[in-house]
Amino acid sequence: MKKTKVISILVVIVMIFSFIGCNDKSNVESLKDGEKRIVKVFVPEGVPSISIAKLIKEKPEVKKNYEVVYETINSTDNLVSKVLNKEADIAIVPSNLPAQAFNKGLDYKICGTVGWGNLYLLSTENVDNISQLKGKEIYNIGRGLTPDIVSRYVMKNNNIDPDNDLTLTYLNGATEIAPAFISGKAKTAIMPEPMITNVLSKKEDAKIGISINDEWKKITDSKYGYPQSTLIVRDELLKDHEKFVMEFMNQINESILWANSNPEQLGEYAEELKMSITKDMAPTVMKRANLNFINIKDCKDEYRNFYKVLEEYDAKSIGGKIPDEAIYFK
């Protein structure tokens, strides 16, 4: 009788561990022998693309039977389309886009931050603190877009009313704001990298006065600042191919560490891949690019603060409301 009981208990234990094993998604191998999973990764041209230049150039294997296909997108509208149409398995996107996609019911999760704020105030006048901006005309990219919202937030929290204390002039993008500054039409402007490095090389009397991200950190008591470029992954990939995703995230981190430590070689890769920076520009760009991969579990507060600021200014910028915790990969 005792022997029968022992055998029964052992059978139950084996069944329990078998059940646990079957439901542990991290151990699931979804691909059959000989089956290949194509993973489409989209990234916008600029600092986000150079964050994974090493991966695009060298194409290291992430995991057996997985093929990663990279595509660099020149237009923000095209990138948004890739995400909203669910063409992207993985994408690096402007950090308000995940909230918009989530509020539309799309199945993407935020897995981490690739790049933090790299907006700077550039001027041909003596401006090295925000209080000196009163009464000046400031050029920026796109009213109501992220550069405008975060800049306004920084101004307001430094006792400057953007609408009454400043003259704000908005242009459509880099193709307009850089020429306006270089020609002397704009004396003060807010720009990101790598545009700044390009402009400084052509405008000797210009200098960087203020880091918008540094000011954001002071105001919000944030360790990193505001998230500018975000890594998102489709739910299906996370649920059925979690080991692959975790290894891919490791490779992104390694790529960024390499880019920060090897800017000259990064420049060579960027030139070969026809990206927006040259070998000569790369070392200077990387000093201000603020590339630093942080897993979402370590930077949720930065997103909560960021989305709160965007909602207060214009809820449409995040799709109508602050997304709940389900947007974050756990």
Rank of each mutant, 00 (worst) to 15 (best):
W216N: 04
K287S: 06
N158D: 04
T113K: 12
I277N: 05
D324K: 13
C299I: 12
V199G: 02
G46A: 02
L166Q: 07
T76D: 03
K202G: 00
F248D: 01
K274I: 01
M15W: 13
F102M: 06
V69Y: 05
Y108R: 10
Y170C: 06
D128H: 14
Y303P: 03
P179I: 04
R234G: 09
W216P: 03
G112F: 12
L257M: 11
T230K: 01
I7D: 01
V199K: 06
E271L: 07
T188P: 02
I38D: 13
F293D: 03
G267N: 11
Y303G: 06
N126W: 03
K59W: 01
N164D: 07
Y108H: 10
M155W: 15
G144W: 15
K63Q: 14
W216R: 12
S131H: 08
D324T: 06
I38P: 01
K287W: 06
M15C: 13
K243V: 01
E247T: 13
V14Q: 05
L31I: 06
G209K: 15
E215I: 08
Y70Q: 04
G319V: 05
I219N: 05
N172G: 12
L257T: 07
Q100R: 14
K59C: 00
K243D: 09
P283A: 05
K187T: 06
G135C: 04
N198H: 12
R152P: 00
I7W: 02
D24G: 00
A174Y: 15
D128I: 05
S51C: 04
Y269L: 15
V69G: 00
Y170W: 15
K134F: 02
A282F: 09
F17I: 14
S75T: 03
A53Q: 08
F248Q: 10
V12C: 10
I294D: 01
G144K: 14
N126C: 01
K57D: 10
G105W: 11
M1G: 04
D33K: 15
Y108M: 11
A289D: 06
I73K: 12
N118F: 13
E67K: 14
N85S: 13
E29T: 09
S211G: 05
V47D: 02
P227K: 13
F329G: 05
I182R: 15
E236G: 00
L84M: 14
D161Q: 11
K274M: 03
Y313Q: 13
P227I: 07
K156I: 10
R143M: 07
S8R: 11
L133G: 08
P323S: 09
V11R: 09
N27E: 08
G225T: 08
P283N: 07
F19I: 15
V233A: 10
K134C: 01
A178V: 09
A189Q: 09
L133D: 10
D33C: 01
M1W: 03
F42H: 03
D163M: 04
K239C: 00
K82E: 10
I256Y: 12
D165M: 08
K82D: 03
M249V: 10
N158W: 08
T167H: 14
I92L: 08
K5L: 12
V93A: 06
K203Q: 11
F181D: 04
K279P: 03
S95M: 02
A289R: 10
L273A: 02
K63M: 15
E67P: 00
W116N: 02
S95Y: 09
G46I: 07
T230E: 06
S201H: 12
